Amino acid sequence: MAGKLKKGSLVKVIAEKLVNSLEAKASDTRFPSYLFESKGEILDMEGDYALVQFYVATPNIWLKIDSLEAAT
């Protein structure tokens, strides 16, 4: 699925993949609910990561591409 994602794609976060990721283990694991309950848009991509903008009043966030799926 990650191969189909590109700039401008609407995405949802896959909770299981984010919670069990190396990035989650290296930081605070109390993720805000909007990450899993809302859609975001990919603004930029760099290597294995995507900069995602959620439509809430919060900064954009870099997430590993394999923890994202296309939103329906």
Rank of each mutant, 00 (worst) to 15 (best):
N60Q: 13
P32G: 02
W62S: 08
R30W: 00
A26W: 11
E16I: 09
D66G: 02
V52W: 02
Y55L: 15
I61W: 02
T29K: 12
S67Y: 07
D48G: 11
K39W: 07
F54S: 00
G40C: 14
V56T: 12
E46N: 12
E69N: 09
E16V: 08
K64Q: 12
T58H: 11
A50S: 11
L10I: 02
G3C: 05
T72H: 07
K39L: 09
L68G: 00
L63G: 03
K6G: 04
P59H: 09
T29V: 08
G3A: 09
E16T: 10
L51S: 04
K25S: 13
F54E: 00
N20Q: 14
S67A: 15
G3L: 08
M45C: 08
K39Y: 06
G40P: 06
K12Q: 10
V52G: 04
A26K: 15
N20V: 07
S38V: 02
L51P: 02
S27G: 14
A2Y: 05
D66V: 06
V56W: 10
D44Y: 13
L18G: 02
A15K: 12
S33Q: 15
L22D: 05
D44W: 07
D28M: 01
V52E: 03
E46C: 10
A57Y: 10
K64L: 13
E46H: 10
A57N: 14
N60S: 14
F31Q: 00
A24D: 05
A24P: 00
A70R: 07
M1R: 09
I14L: 13
K12A: 10
A2W: 05
A57I: 07
G3W: 01
E16C: 12
I61T: 10
F36A: 02
K12Y: 03
I65Q: 04
T58L: 10
E69A: 15
E23A: 15
L51A: 13
L51C: 10
L10V: 01
Y55N: 13
M1T: 08
M45E: 04
F54C: 04
I65S: 04
N60F: 09
W62A: 06
D66E: 11
P59C: 08
P32A: 02
I42A: 10
A71R: 04
K64Y: 11
G3T: 04
S38Q: 13
E37H: 11
L5E: 01
K25A: 14
L5C: 05
K17L: 12
I65G: 00
K25R: 14
K6V: 07
I65K: 11
E46G: 07
L63M: 14
E41N: 10
G47S: 08
Y34V: 01
Y34T: 03
F31A: 03
V19W: 01
E16A: 15
S67E: 12
S9V: 07
D48N: 12
E16R: 14
G8T: 05
A71Q: 03
D48T: 11
E23Y: 13
D48A: 14
L18T: 04
I61H: 02
D44V: 11
S9F: 06
D66R: 11
D66C: 09
F31L: 09
S21R: 04
I42Y: 07
K7Y: 08
L35D: 00
T72A: 11
K12F: 03
S9Q: 06
K7G: 08
D66K: 11
R30M: 04
M1F: 06
L18Q: 11
E41I: 15
V52C: 05
E16S: 15
L63P: 02
A57D: 14
K17Y: 07
